[in-house]
């Protein structure tokens, strides 16, 4: 018994070069902006062929397949999700929510042995106007963990895990890209 709830990787910030840090942040901010603006093609171009997109209904721990999640997309299901958003008849996002999110507390938690994979964490607050239904402002606070991998020299997203602060409570429609 260590008495610690967190694995070491969660508590240790891995030093990366200023250039790497800047490159990672630039990627995360771009990813956030494309999601905010429902630019699905450009957003999808950021993901790898083995992308995993996970929004659990509690802490992001354990085997994602053992229980039910809000979102637990492999690459194929993520493609379906985006295809549905692009049909023009996804009423839950017609019109698309007006969104802006803030990313902060960006840390690199792990670097792969190959030097081409990074696990990052950031806190976020997303403001959403539910423009397609109640017209209310919905606020989505949480933490996002990315696994980024360098593919042909460019960073790409291999995993995005979103831990909502409210994950254990019922959620309103979540038909956009979180």
């Amino acid at each position: 018994m260590t008495g610690r709830a967190d694995a070491p990787v969660e508590t240790t910030r891995i030093p990366v070069s200023a250039d790497e840090q800047r490159e990672i942040e630039t990627f995360l901010f771009l990813e956030a902006r494309l999601a905010d603006e429902s630019r699905y093609d450009e957003w999808e171009a950021l993901v790898t062929d083995d992308m995993h997109y996970w929004v659990p209904a509690g802490p992001a721990e354990g085997d994602p397949t053992a229980t039910l999640s809000y979102i637990n997309d492999n690459r194929a299901r993520l493609a379906t999700r985006i295809r549905q958003l692009q049909t023009g008849s996804r009423h839950a996002q017609t019109p698309a929510s007006v969104m802006r999110r803030l990313l902060a507390n960006i840390e690199v938690l792990a670097v792969g042995d190959d030097g081409a994979t990074y696990v990052t964490t950031a806190n976020f607050v997303l403001y959403e106007l539910a423009a397609q239904s109640t017209q209310e402002l919905r606020v989505w606070p949480g933490r996002v963990r990315h696994t980024l991998r360098r593919v042909d020299g460019q960073l790409r997203m291999a995993a995005k895990v979103v831990e909502l602060v409210t994950a254990t409570r019922p959620q309103p429609n979540l038909a956009f890209i979180l």
């Binding site: 209904a57 053992a66 229980t67 039910l68 999640s69 809000y70 239904s133 109640t134 209310e136 409570r169 019922p170 959620q171 309103p172 429609n173």
Partner: peptide, 9 residues
């Protein structure tokens, strides 16, 4: 295997 809550107005 867990319940998912969907809040609807």
């Amino acid at each position: 295997r867990g319940w998912i809550g969907h809040k609807v107005s």
